[in-house]
Design a protein around this nucleic acid. Structure first.
Lengths: 268, 268
DNA sequence: AATTGTTCTTTTATACAATAATATACAATT
DNA sequence: AATTGTATATTATTGTATAAAAGAACAATT
């Protein structure tokens, strides 16, 4: 979206899977923060283009849930948390209400690195803590991603290819310098998940998402290797070319090689 | 375990990841139900061999959580539930307390067939409802399972092989007739998960478990093909032989073929 | 030394009222 | 016709008191 676009309540509500009520509050908040302007009976209009640093940091701030998630991840990886924890402990430690904590635990449970014990408490999976975790994720991806491309009926719409290509090129053109490690990581995941989606089999995409959310844990304490990044993106673009021409076997081989030369994200 | 075995509280507690308190209650319940006998200061002793029909059905009964899980699964597959549901609706419909419902939803969310909406309510994944779901699970397994066997360093302990072989042979020898569809399904899943575990990479096992819990949904409305079952188990035994001799490439090929000839479980 | 019995503490569940957040329906405006 | 404004209903969260379940420590028994 860009400055000047109208912000239509129902459209936003549908896109975000909520009703108009919270959208309305959001629009008012945007106006208060200076990102939109509203007139009576005529709705709101975006005043600043999003994606600017200011907009991003305004959004990133004040996100309690994301903060406590990051805190738990950091504490776990730094071995400041025992493998078994009770909800009461966590509520005290991170100053969360029961509901907030439940949502946090639910999220982590879905991502697969914590599970409920039969009695009181939860246990973090060894998976994440083991030093081999990163290599195991890599091995898993090396199986899943090329296999997805080799599925009979694999197809990636030209609109998807165009969108992916544009984004990669934009990043290469200069946005890279402005991006945070988290954003770089995020775009990388989305790229690969989108490729996997072409198999038309949600189980490939979901298993990939799952390991990606584990990888993100490590990314929380990582740096970005901006040079390797350029080579990485160049490989993405090449992959898109080959996929576009329908040479799937070649694309799968390319993907295999691509995954063997990992970025230094998550290297701590 | 068999009749006459002592039931040692701490051992049971450790095995089940709870403290002695609930174990103690369980033992008293077993005694009340006639499965164990206890003497003061000397603990409890098993009186009947488990695995008998009576023991099994006694356990299966009265499991509220399992029942509501099955009810939701059935209602969903029969299209008696809308894709979007609120917690309040579900609490009323299945007569569950908030906590009971939360546990149920958490479980389903981890299995991957429901997800929280950003506002009020939850949405069932299309994944499960689509008619292609079963074929997609099969395609996914056909990738994951042979790939697991082909992982460098794949190894299946001889103790594991022996245990798996014994169980398969016992089933073939006669237990098959006594087993419920659910049990047949369960043993099948455990066999395959155990094979995948040999790769030493938990992501293979977990992704397999995930799709297996989706398959189980369909199993709730399925019949068992006892004849196909014999062929199926024979293939399992053959696979174990090849794995034992370390011919992993051959084993992977065997697994691929095995997965191409599915049992009629889940055929509705 | 291992195990059971007992007591005490902590944690979680339940119930219920109050409040906040979200959804829904429909009138008003463009 | 599409969109916004507004009122109302429904849903979920919070807070608090109480009960139940589970965990932990230690004495008693085998």
């Amino acid at each position: 979206m860009k400055a000047g676009d109208r912000l239509i309540e129902q459209k936003l509500a549908d896109a975000l899977d909520v009703s108009r009520a919270p959208i309305r509050l959001g629009l008012k908040a945007l106006e208060a923060a200076g990102f939109a302007r509203g007139e009576p009976n005529r709705g709101f209009v975006l005043t600043r283009s999003p994606g600017t640093g200011a907009a991003r940091s305004a959004i990133a701030a004040g996100n309690r849930a994301e903060k406590s998630y990051a805190a738990v991840a950091a504490d776990l990886l730094a071995r400041r948390l025992p493998t078994d924890v009770t909800e009461a402990e966590l509520m005290r430690r991170y100053s969360l209400s029961r509901t907030e904590l439940q949502r946090l635990l639910d999220r982590i449970a879905v991502e697969g690195w914590i599970a409920r014990l039969p009695g009181y408490g939860w246990r973090f999976t060894e998976t994440v803590l083991s030093p081999e975790a990163q290599a195991q994720v890599a091995a898993f991806r090396a199986v899943i991603e090329p296999a997805a491309i080799m599925q009979p009926g694999y197809q990636l719409g030209s609109d998807v290819i165009d969108r992916l290509r544009q984004r990669q090129e934009r990043i290469l053109a200069g946005e890279l310098e402005k991006m945070t490690v988290g954003e770089v990581y995020q775009f990388g995941c989305e790229f690969h998940e989108e490729i996997a989606r072409g198999a038309g089999n949600p189980f490939f995409v979901e298993s990939l998402r799952r390991v990606n959310s584990i990888r993100r844990l490590f990314a929380y304490r990582s740096f970005a290797d901006r040079n390797g990044m350029r080579r990485h993106i160049a490989e993405h673009l090449r992959l898109l070319d080959v996929l576009e021409s329908g040479r799937y076997a070649e694309a799968a081989a390319l993907m295999t090689r691509h995954l063997q030369r990992p970025l230094s994200i998550g290297a701590a």
